[in-house]
């Protein structure tokens, strides 16, 4: 099987400081990769370099495109990359306000992404938006409300609907459950697990919450000072950590 994403030697520096250095991994269809590490460890830099929000200094991000097979995203033209971001990729921000248009209705937020890939029939767009609001458990009668009228958890679910409506194959998530209270977090985790399974999605999820990665990610990378210090099966890395930093991270979690 061809990996959906092959990352090779990805490096990003901020002047003399290292953002992330020499990161390599393969991600296969249907796999969820978790990235953990403390603040400043480079995990968000890595995610943004993968998603093309930041320009990496070196390395390759090879994506298995539908039309032409594996291609280095960094070598693509800007329009090609933007098309990929609209059709095959999705990015869920920690703060839903960064991923939603707050002045547009919930239905409009979902429909806009469909229109960006060519949908024009108003009835179909509204129908699909309704379907997706239902899938993320937002009542259909809220379709004309703006996200400003939604709770934080609803906004996050709306952002997920907006991102997944076009049937992407790869989703980047930056602390998707951060800032939500625990009961909302659980519902979102269940939703994400179901979507990953039903749509065969692949995902890269950055978080500092070890309980979230245990339940959501198949594989885990641990970052420290811009380097990946350990990688493996999620439960193996958490239960039998090999690197001193991972051992410290795992043993530092407070028991509820």
């Amino acid at each position: 099987m061809t990996p959906l994403l092959q990352v090779k030697g990805l490096t990003k520096r901020y002047g003399a400081r290292i953002g992330c250095q020499d990161v390599s991994f393969d991600l296969y269809p249907g796999e969820v990769m978790g990235i953990v590490g403390e603040s400043g460890s480079g995990k968000s830099t890595l995610l943004n370099c993968l998603a093309g929000h930041l320009e990496a200094d070196a390395g390759a991000v090879v994506f298995d495109t539908r039309a032409d097979g594996p291609r280095d995203v960094r070598a693509m033209s800007e329009p090609e990359r933007r098309m990929l971001a609209r059709t095959d990729w999705a990015f869920v921000h920690q703060n839903p306000r960064d991923g939603l248009r707050m002045g547009v209705s919930a239905g409009g937020n979902v429909g806009e992404r469909l229109m960006a890939v060519g949908a024009r029939h108003y009835g179909n767009i509204r129908g699909q938006a309704l379907d997706w609001l239902d899938r993320v458990e937002i009542a259909g009668d809220r379709i004309d409300d703006r996200p400003t009228a939604f709770s934080g958890g609803m906004q996050q679910r709306l952002q997920i609907a907006r991102n997944l409506v076009t049937g992407p194959r790869l989703v980047f998530m930056d602390e998707p459950t951060g800032g939500l209270d625990v009961s909302v977090q659980a519902r979102l985790l269940d939703l994400l697990r179901g979507l990953v399974r039903e749509m065969g999605l692949s995902a890269v999820i950055v978080t500092h919450d070890l309980a979230v990665v245990r339940l959501l990610a198949h594989r885990l990378m641990v970052m420290k000072s811009g380097h990946v210090v350990e990688a493996g099966l999620t439960d193996q890395v958490l239960d039998d950590p090999q690197h001193g930093y991972t051992q410290l991270l795992v043993s530092s979690v407070l028991q509820a």
Binding site: E31, A186, L189, D190, L215, H218, L233
Partner: peptide, 26 residues
């Protein structure tokens, strides 16, 4: 490799541990 172990766990190798670990509310 991790994904081979995952495939093995999915189809071939089951494990009943002493602890139930689930997403709350499911």
């Amino acid at each position: 490799a991790p994904r081979e172990v995952l495939a093995l766990r999915r189809a071939t190798l089951g494990y009943v541990s002493q602890f139930l670990r689930v997403v709350p509310r499911v």
